[in-house]
């Protein structure tokens, strides 16, 4: 069954799928290798730290669970923004977009708080393998979230200027794909990096 958003331009491509959407999926496939490399470096080095602090001394699982939950909920609000624009309800789309961006910012603030706490307790990029692999992995994820937030806010402004119409639902869908991908990367990180090495 083909999923086609209503009121979008008729497609004229050989495969019948939109160029931009295909590009986005290829990009996400490529990103899988990017985060795969970073995560495997973390896993490879997880038991090889010569000095502390070690993961189990620093991780605050309840706190990270809450921030994971926040990112997960931002995915829900993102998908509601998409549902809204596909119905032609620009007003609600705008609300959900801002909601998504704010949840993203909240997640980033949580990460900043967590990083600061780790740093105060003696963990930096230089301290040990845990510091190097953890900060680079979660830092790159945070950078992806930040870029997503900037994109969301930019689109929100465009919609306030009246530049986003129902026919632009593909734009929202593509941003959504990126946002959900960042979310599923975090699902993997939360389990492999936090829960499995936190004990």
């Amino acid at each position: 069954m083909a999923y086609a958003a209503p009121h979008t331009q008729p497609l004229e491509t050989s495969t019948g799928v939109d160029n931009r959407k295909l590009l986005m999926w290829l990009f996400l496939g490529s990103e899988a290798l990017f985060f795969g490399s970073l995560i495997s470096a973390y896993l490879l080095y997880r038991n090889r730290n010569l000095t502390g602090p070690f993961p189990r001394e620093l991780y605050d699982i309840p706190f990270t669970s809450v921030s994971s939950f926040i990112l997960l909920m931002s995915s829900v609000s993102m998908v509601l923004a998409l549902a809204a624009i596909q119905r032609g309800d620009i007003r609600r789309m705008r609300i959900w977009l801002v909601c998504t961006a704010l949840l993203g910012i909240l997640f980033l603030s949580g990460q900043a708080y967590e990083f600061t706490g780790f740093y105060d307790r003696g963990l930096s990029l230089r301290t040990n393998l845990f510091g190097s692999t953890f900060f680079v992995l979660t830092g790159f994820h945070g950078a992806h979230v930040s870029i997503g937030v900037i994109i969301l806010l930019s689109v929100w402004v465009r919609s306030l200027q009246g530049k986003i119409k129902q026919s632009d639902s593909l734009t929202i869908e593509l941003i959504g794909l990126y946002w959900h991908f960042v979310d599923i990367v975090w699902i993997v990180i939360f389990t492999l990096v936090y829960l499995l090495t936190g004990r």
Binding site: A41, Y45, R48, N49, L50, T51, L125, R126, N128, L129, G131, S132, T133, F135, V136
Partner: peptide, 13 residues
């Protein structure tokens, strides 16, 4: 540039 330890054998890498 930032003193990480990915390939640093002295830190266990």
């Amino acid at each position: 540039l930032f003193g990480a330890n990915f390939f640093n054998a002295a830190a266990g890498g």
